[in-house]
Design a protein around this nucleic acid. Structure first.
Lengths: 183, 183
DNA sequence: CTCGAATGAGACGTCAATGTCTCATTCAAT
DNA sequence: ATTGAATGAGACATTGACGTCTCATTCGAG
């Protein structure tokens, strides 16, 4: 039943994304390993969450790379970004709320890098003239994370169909809820 | 140093909205009362959270009433709704993530009532022709909650100015991030 | 002022989760 | 087949928060 560290991490991510208060014992069982072995991989719960955070950051850096944020218009890049983020949306939701618990101190620098990339994308759109300038890039970045997390939860709860994930986020984020005569 | 139950609840809401893992002892100190007295008001932590939930639901029902969701266009009503929700945005953020922990079972019926009202508002907008019909009312409802919570956090972290709260939410939710030639 | 109720401080005991440790077993490489 | 490392199961002590209780003090109504 040997699993390498990465497999354990992914199992933990899957469980904790659904039940963020899961016990170390539950995490171990979910990964199909003993609690002792879990502790051999990760010194403690903090270390596990930290490792999850680093995995999440890695995943999203890859997703951002795959989305080729620099190519095409910012709007096109944003669509690709949401599409690439979908597989890790639940993990993002978990990490965002988990980060919310930290006392401001010691937020992982990786988030700052990711924030900067998303923020730069929105700013590029503003310079292109395709993104509104009255909504700050910082807010748009937060809103994007928020919508991804909210939609991930809504899908888990069955309030939104999984197949609509990308559409619901992108359309709301870009176009808004208002129906305009001319789009 | 006597505080009535409602004052204690509000103090607890203020603290727990910022630090959702705060101890019963911290809650008591934040309310300026002893831990024993806190337990005299609320049997335990669960009871406290439950009471907070009920207070939040009451507050939002009042907010919804004040927003007069039935009057004017749905878009106008939505603006009023966000404005009326602002004072309780942090509490909403806390309760939403707290609800996320519950195992689907036993979600307070009050939420269903509130959801229904918001959902009906979006549906009315769709029938009026002012709200897009390709975004489901259920999703728009979730997205509204999500954006309010996200913005509340962003304000707490200083990433969004408090004075922009209503504008950022309403403009993003209604108009979206894309800059259109004709608005 | 008097008396009874409410409060604050703190001392418990309880409990769940954590982290450490041991030991028998399993597995893989040789 | 042998051997050494890794694992799983469980025992154990520790920790932090919880909930209960007591008691001296305070507050307020009369």
């Amino acid at each position: 039943m040997a699993m390498d560290r990465d497999q354990v991490l992914r199992a933990a991510a899957a469980l904790l994304s659904r039940k963020s208060t899961a016990t170390m014992d539950e995490v171990a069982r979910a990964a199909g390993i003993g609690r002792a072995t879990l502790h051999r991989h990760f010194a403690g719960r903090d270390a596990l969450v930290r490792a999850l955070e680093e995995m999440g950051i890695r995943e999203f850096e890859v997703a951002f790379d795959n989305a080729r944020l620099g190519e095409g218009t910012a709007v096109e890049a944003l669509r690709r970004l949401v599409a690439e983020s979908e597989p890790n949306a639940q993990l993002l939701a978990f990490l965002v709320t988990e980060n919310q618990l930290f006392e401001g101190d010691q937020v992982h620098e990786g988030w700052a890098r990711l924030d900067a990339r998303v923020s730069a994308l929105f700013r590029r759109g503003q310079e292109e003239g395709t993104i509104r300038i009255d909504l700050s890039p910082a807010w748009l970045t937060e809103a994007l994370y928020g919508l991804i997390g909210t939609c991930a939860w809504a899908v888990m709860d069955g309030r939104v169909a999984a197949k609509d994930f990308q559409y619901m986020i992108i359309e709301l984020l870009l176009g808004g809820a208002r129906r305009s005569v001319e789009k």
